[in-house]
Design a protein around this nucleic acid. Structure first.
Lengths: 167, 167
DNA sequence: CCGATTTGTTTTAAACCTAAAATAAATCGG
DNA sequence: CCGATTTATTTTAGGTTTAAAACAAATCGG
């Protein structure tokens, strides 16, 4: 992989937009740039420090919040990925002994999935480091800016939910 | 794939955070949720209307802005994906006749890649529809909110660039 | 000029991801 | 009860993506 590091390359999708592009398009590309940059940071961090992939971490983080376990559909809904994707990820996590999987007693179509003790220990170790990384990443914008960004994103999220039936 | 549609499920990563989570973490998950929702919308739109994948569209959109062509590294830098990834995508686009590829005359390591006439026509057809989709998606937040979001994301982007050498 | 390093790209292996089809269990309407 | 539909998940096929290794051309320092 090429460096893309330290010296602030500033060569991203948004940078190659022109002033006559609509603000909506520029905002979307900027959002995508921020999201991608963050994701790459988190991904690299988890690989280097804990030798784990981001999708696996995401599953574990979700399960840690649900001691009673979650179904496959709940997981794919929360993570917003396809159900087939979750099947494969859980397969691997079960193999690694971090997750357990049992058929629901009352509905034999459902799988109830939860963290094993090893999985819970693993998350307990990673969570503070992960949280620290996120805090550090956002440290550059002030507290007020962060609060404002958070609330603007909240509005966008609502807008996206409302307009999902192609307004 | 399960529906996840119309009735605003509101089951995403951020929704399962608790109030005692740091604001930075909640902001990041909210950002990720918005980005993922947008991405899924664009992806579905491009597939249904033009039978093309999002990564292919991204490459074409970049190349359309560079009539003189781009190198593989420039492409991977702008799209923020690995260089190996671009190799595979360009392979397919060349096969489909949308992109041409020639070795740079002065530096035989470099590939200069550009849209064919067919590729340019294809983009001309897709671009307005794509732009319309984005505008529609952001229609829910007002003009002022959009401007504010745009500028906050700008601050975040700068912060992420500055802090990339793990501040 | 020539070895060492850097730069641009491709290859490889493994994982991830989606959309669509298939499977299987539960529910619903007579 | 039984066929039709819905719901939960897995399977399949194809594409995307990464990180690391390999390769090849260009540049750099004597």
């Amino acid at each position: 992989m090429t460096d893309a590091g330290s010296a602030a390359p500033l060569t991203d999708r948004e940078t190659s937009t022109s002033v006559d592009d609509k603000l909506e398009l520029r905002a979307w590309l900027r959002l995508l740039t921020c999201s991608t940059m963050m994701e790459q940071r988190v991904r690299a961090f988890l690989r280097e420090r804990f030798d784990i992939t981001l999708p696996r971490f995401d599953i574990i983080a979700q399960l840690d919040r649900a001691p009673q376990g979650m179904t496959m559909s709940e997981l794919s809904g929360h993570l917003m990925v396809s159900n087939g994707n979750v099947t494969g990820l859980i397969d691997r996590l079960v193999q690694e002994g971090l997750v357990s999987r049992e058929t629901d007693a009352t509905d034999r179509r459902s799988q109830r999935v939860r963290l094993t003790d090893a999985g819970r220990r693993q998350f307990a170790e990673m969570a503070p480091a992960h949280q620290g990384l996120i805090e550090q990443a956002f440290a550059g914008i002030g507290k007020a800016g962060l609060r404002d960004l958070y609330s603007r994103l909240g509005e966008l999220k609502v807008a996206l939910h409302n307009g999902s039936d192609q307004g």
